[in-house]
């Protein structure tokens, strides 16, 4: 089971890196979204897989009974999903605004902050 998930994580990483290498912002955004899912799946797999045994303390007991699924990675993933979602939303809106204002979806044509023909510094005082 771990092997299958590890392969899936690898596939996700490959896809996201391929998309991130693109110059089009919309593709980079898709890459970022897939990258976030790849990482969450990675953390989930790193916490070891246990099937169908939720980490809930049975009624009347004081602690969990072995074996049970590791709840910590799930808490970490939940946090990471929420944070990643917030940042992704921001980047999405930012990309849209940039498309409207700069009329560019291609990072190569986005040169306002770094002008292509920047003046050379003077060679003398």
């Amino acid at each position: 089971m771990e092997f299958a998930l590890a392969a899936l994580v690898g596939l996700f990483f490959a896809t996201s890196i391929y998309l991130l290498l693109s110059r089009a912002i919309i593709r980079m955004l898709l890459g970022i979204a897939i990258l976030g899912n790849a990482v969450n799946l990675l953390i989930f797999t790193a916490g070891r897989l246990t099937r169908e045994i939720p980490p809930i303390v049975p009624h009347g007991q004081k602690q969990l009974i072995e074996p049970f699924a590791n709840p910590l990675p799930q808490a970490l993933i939940l946090t990471a999903i929420v944070i990643g979602f917030a940042l992704f939303t921001f980047l999405l809106v930012l990309g849209y605004r940039a498309y409207q204002e700069l009329d560019a979806d291609d990072t190569d044509t986005m040169r306002i902050a770094e002008p292509e023909r920047a003046p050379r510094p003077p060679l003398s005082y």
């Binding site: 990258l35 990482v39 990675l42 790193a46 990471a80 930012l94």
Partner: peptide, 24 residues
Amino acid sequence: LDGAIKYGFLNFLATTFFLIALGY
């Protein structure tokens, strides 16, 4: 907007790499 695109993507990527390391 131009600066924020570059700042945003690269920094988001950096924290994601950090998260990968955390998982490992």
